[in-house]
Design a protein around this nucleic acid. Sequence first.
DNA 1: CCGAAACAGGACCATTCAGGTCTTTAATTA
DNA 2: TAATTAAAGACCTGAATGGTCCTGTTTCGG
Lengths: 154, 154
Amino acid sequence: MLKLSRLADYAIVILVKLGEQDGVVTSPALAVITGVPEPTVAKVLKVLSAHGFVLSQRGAKGGYRLARSLADMSVASVIAAVDGQIALTACVGGRECDTGLSCGLCGSWDVINTAIRSTLEGISLESMRPKEACPTVLSQINKLNAPHTVREGA
Amino acid sequence: MLKLSRLADYAIVILVKLGEQDGVVTSPALAVITGVPEPTVAKVLKVLSAHGFVLSQRGAKGGYRLARSLADMSVASVIAAVDGQIALTACVGGRECDTGLSCGLCGSWDVINTAIRSTLEGISLESMRPKEACPTVLSQINKLNAPHTVREGA
DNA sequence: CCGAAACAGGACCATTCAGGTCTTTAATTA
DNA sequence: TAATTAAAGACCTGAATGGTCCTGTTTCGG
Ligand code: SF4
Ligand code: SF4
């Protein structure tokens, strides 16, 4: 249905909320803040920690905190960390689909996939924050979609 | 993983291939052409028929043919027909997610979702055809992403 | 007029993967 | 050093998707 996995969504929410706190925050605390069940929060944080989005402090008085600014995290990178790289179809990046059919559409999908990926790459978590959400995201989309190799009439 | 459902992918392929034939084509024939297993092709065609993408001819010498030109079919509409409307998160269009958490990110997701949906709306199946794939799709993406309410600095 | 061919529609099963829970392990602090 | 607390990893469960099949209806050819 072309929907984002819930875990990826949670990851975004958790990171944004974490960015609004100061000092280290524990999993249970984040669970309360976000409303997501504790075990799930913990699971997501583990993944985010493994991918370097957050720094963990073990032991008593431990918890998590952002490894870098929200502005330096793209939506796409978080999604990729949690769910794997964005790939609309099975044949992006030269991979061939199990049916092995010679549909020839792969190229088109590849372009579309790249465009969407680039768009999400250009949207930072900072932009996702409620207060300044819409305008920034819009301009990001507008700005980041044209990029790499898009030429008007070619 | 932000991936398209396989059925939707097949639907696109089938429609494009169907557009390259003339006269009515049977499910088995399309299965051979596309490489997709016959039962699945039949299933997809039923859905496409129900949504008015193809016209069916029953009885002997029956088969399917396009209801309208490939240029008049958008990628998004096909996806919506097969998989339901595009919705990255559970909270697009004012719907609220089961966790009921007050994350406040819904607005941002809504914008991103709309942008992606619009992009796919603007890409016709004709554009997906191998020969002219990349350039057309690229310009479509470039052209269709700015549209509806995106303003530069607002 | 009869039989074969092909779609329509539905139900059914099997698999996959996401979502969630649990146990173990390590670090911090008193 | 021992108790406390949180991270890390493994495991299980369940829903959704993908895929298959069967029955009924319609049309063309013999
Ligand atoms: S576009 Fe064609 S090759 Fe790519 S995944 Fe779909 S069917 Fe397979
Ligand atoms: S963005 Fe927030 S409200 Fe929307 S689906 Fe995700 S968690 Fe739920």
